[in-house]
């Protein structure tokens, strides 16, 4: 999923994005990325977050 580009982000300002997902298979799931950066740069900032999905 690609968010619409943010034209400007001032110094010491932040932008908050929220993405809602539904677990469909049990296990540890890592959200690979997300990656944020300038569109014309090749080295974005990347973070990963894991979530455990459980069933009966």
């Amino acid at each position: 999923m690609i968010f619409e580009p943010l034209a400007k982000l001032a110094p010491r300002a932040d932008a908050i994005y929220r993405v809602t997902v539904r677990g469909i298979t049990p296990g540890d799931v890592a959200l690979p990325g997300p990656a944020a950066g300038r569109r014309d740069l090749l080295s974005p900032v990347v973070r990963e977050e894991s979530t455990k999905v459980y069933g009966d």
């Binding site: 034209a7 400007k8 539904r22 799931v29 999905v53």
Partner: peptide, 20 residues
């Protein structure tokens, strides 16, 4: 000032995207 910022998320196979 940072300009032209883009965020890309990849949703794993075990999950279903419900939307931003």
């Amino acid at each position: 000032m940072e300009t032209n910022l883009e965020l890309v998320c990849t949703v794993p196979d075990k999950m279903e995207l419900r939307g931003p």
